[in-house]
């Protein structure tokens, strides 16, 4: 019997499909929080979603090229990514990829710079440049999100538009228990930042679909080539994610030993604990 998600998850918006993949015609089906959903684009162009068990119609919003719904009472809007609406950006889904892992494990891996030289060798890192330098993390209670700033890492190929290695600056946001947005130095324009988002659809506690957003400044490369770059990286992460044990993220600070580089992960686990998230995690014993 699946566990009942607490309010922090039940009342949140959750991604369930790339918007472009929802057409008119027969309903398509997916799983969200152990609940079977059927969805299609109605004749008026609006996305329709209903629960298969009760037949209830659910609320839908389309944001950042994806469709989001909620099984509870969601807030008025989703977290904001203002850069997405800048006219010269190339926005794209890089796919919605099924992964046998919990959503929090996937988010935490996304926040981790320590694995770059070992898992993304020659792209996002390479030996001997393995040090994660000191960076800042804050939990903003006002915005209800985690912010990691001043992250710097040497990357041989930070983006498809990069033709040489460079020290890349990162800013990470975690504005949703299962979503993270990354801003990184844009090789094509020093004054701006490329935006990469990972939006996890919790199908069950231990399986997700990872919906990948890229919002890039890049006049040179095609969408196909930029998608390929991101899929190559995520494809390298996938077996690492799927071999994590336990699959659910332990929130007890003593459960897994962190190092200094894991500062953002520590904040993330604490934040999930404080929000009372109980789904995809192993809650701290009371």
């Amino acid at each position: 019997m699946p566990i009942a998600p607490s309010a922090a998850i039940l009342d949140a918006w959750h991604v369930f499909s790339a918007a472009a993949e929802i057409g008119p015609g027969p309903y398509r089906s997916t799983l969200l929080l152990d609940t079977r959903l059927d969805y299609r684009r109605g004749t008026n162009g609006e996305v329709e979603v209903r629960r298969r068990d009760t037949g209830a119609a659910l609320l839908v919003i389309e944001r950042y090229g994806f469709a989001w719904t909620s099984l509870g009472s969601p807030p008025d809007d989703l977290f904001s990514i203002p850069e997405f609406y800048e006219p010269d950006r190339k926005n794209m889904s890089c796919g919605s990829l099924g992964v046998n892992v919990s959503a929090p494990r996937a988010v935490e891996n996304f926040l981790d710079m320590g694995h770059f030289p070992y898992v993304h060798t020659g792209i996002l890192g390479e030996e001997p440049h393995t040090e994660v330098k000191e960076y800042d993390v804050e939990i903003s209670y006002e915005r209800d999100e985690i912010l990691a700033t001043r992250c710097r890492f040497y990357q041989p190929r930070a983006a498809l538009s990069a033709d040489e290695g460079q020290d890349v600056e990162y800013i990470y946001r975690v504005p949703h228990p299962y979503c993270s947005v990354l801003y990184k130095s844009c090789p094509a324009d020093e004054s701006r930042l490329d935006v990469i988002g990972i939006f996890c659809q919790p199908m069950t506690e231990e399986t997700i679909r990872a919906h990948l957003l890229q919002s890039m400044i890049d006049d040179e490369n095609t969408i196909t080539a930029m998608r390929r770059f991101q899929q190559t990286i995520f494809g390298q992460d996938k077996p690492i994610l799927e071999n994590q044990y336990p699959k659910r993220l332990p929130l007890d600070p003593r459960a897994e030993t962190p190092i200094r580089a894991d500062k953002s992960a520590i904040a993330y686990r604490r934040w999930l604990s404080q929000k009372g998230v109980n789904y995809g995690v192993i809650p701290q014993a009371a």
Partner: peptide, 10 residues
């Protein structure tokens, strides 16, 4: 030549 098999179905 990259072909966008997924999600583009190229």
């Amino acid at each position: 030549v990259p072909v966008d098999f997924y999600p583009g179905r190229e």
